[in-house]
């Protein structure tokens, strides 16, 4: 199958800190890749390099055939094809849920207001929040905010969605709704890269699990393989640790 994401030899330095030390990641169309690893191993940095929120220090990144690191690439156009969901939701507090979703539809896709709002409503409906369209982020629960954030990204019909610990900031009882929205997205055939500690979700939904440590991919494979019979000692130690929680 065609790869949507091809990242090769990604390096990232923050000053003297060598955070990514040659990471390769390929994600096939409709694949859900789950990225795990200890805190500080570089998972967020890797995701953020993929849509160039961080500038990699070296390597090659292609997303949907677009060379992300080429100076001539129109980065704003390229980012339309890459949805991102953040740990802290990052909804615009001065706009309603509908306004949050419609903003890029109007400004980036240049849709007329009516069409943008129609599409925004449809996206909110997909995450089960049609009745919250007029609410401001401050009037929504964390779980609802994160679903709006998912709708905001999905409304642009990206080719791949990046999730950076989408449920880590949520109270446990709100995690389910967000995972449900992600599951439905997956079933609709969306290509996804998910950084998360939700092992249950990984076991149920992931095609492949990638374990990172110290800026390198240590091990990867099917969820049963990585979780059930990890080859590397570091992977075993990490999985033991999170299974205790």
């Amino acid at each position: 199958m065609a790869a949507i994401v091809r990242a090769h030899g990604i390096h990232k330095h923050f000053g003297a800190l060598h955070v990514l030390r040659g990471v390769d990641l390929e994600v096939a169309e409709r694949e859900l890749v789950f990225v795990i690893g200890p805190s500080g191993s570089g998972k967020s940095t890797l995701l953020r390099c993929l849509n160039r929120l961080e500038e990699p220090s070296g390597g090659r990144i292609e997303v949907d055939g677009i060379d992300m690191l080429d100076r001539r690439t129109d980065i704003n156009r390229a980012r339309q094809r890459i949805g991102m969901v953040f740990q802290s939701f990052n909804l615009y507090p001065h706009m309603t849920a509908l306004g949050n979703v419609a903003l890029a539809l109007r400004q980036v896709l240049k849709l007329p207001r009516g069409e943008a709002e129609g599409r925004a409503r449809a996206a909110l409906e997909r995450v089960g929040l049609a009745d919250r369209a007029g609410h401001y982020p401050g009037q929504l629960s964390g779980g609802q905010q994160q679903r709006v954030a998912i709708a905001r990204a999905v409304a642009l019909e990206p080719r791949v969605m990046l999730f950076d610990e989408p449920t880590s900031a949520l109270d446990p009882e709100l995690v389910g709704g967000v995972l449900q929205a992600m599951r439905e997205l997956r079933e609709s055939g969306m290509t996804m890269v998910v950084v998360s500690h939700e092992m249950g979700f990984a076991r149920a939904a992931a095609d492949r699990v990638v374990f990172m440590d110290h800026g390198l991919v240590v091990e990867q494979g099917a969820p049963e393989a990585v979780f059930g019979a990890p080859r590397e000692e570091r992977t075993r130690a990490f999985i033991r640790q999170i299974d205790r929680h």
Binding site: L53, F86, A104, L156
Partner: peptide, 10 residues
């Protein structure tokens, strides 16, 4: 806030 908006192509 910047990152959310920029990630949607703004």
């Amino acid at each position: 806030q910047w990152e959310a908006a920029r990630s949607t192509g703004l």
